[in-house]
């Protein structure tokens, strides 16, 4: 295995690049899910009548 990687350095580059892009994709996916939670909690708060105006910052709870 080590001999193969030594003779084919572009395979190491491929593995590292794949890991970096997979990391970015996982990060983006988790961010997306957290944002959904945030959006849902906001919708629930608004439905409970905490604020009728979404631009009213004085009454909105972040």
């Amino acid at each position: 295995m080590i001999e193969y990687l030594d003779a084919h350095p572009h395979v190491i580059v491929m593995i590292v690049t794949l890991l970096i892009w997979t990391g970015i994709a996982v990060y983006l996916w988790r961010l997306d899910k957290r944002l959904v939670t945030l959006e849902n909690s906001t919708t629930t708060t608004q439905n409970q009548g905490s604020s009728s105006n979404p631009n009213d910052i004085s009454s909105s709870a972040p």
Binding site: V13, T22, A25
Partner: peptide
Amino acid sequence: QRSALRAILAWGAVAVGIVFGLF
């Protein structure tokens, strides 16, 4: 709008591109 297809295709296409572009 959220789209799982968009996310899966984005990662899938980039992963295929990396493998076939570098291997």
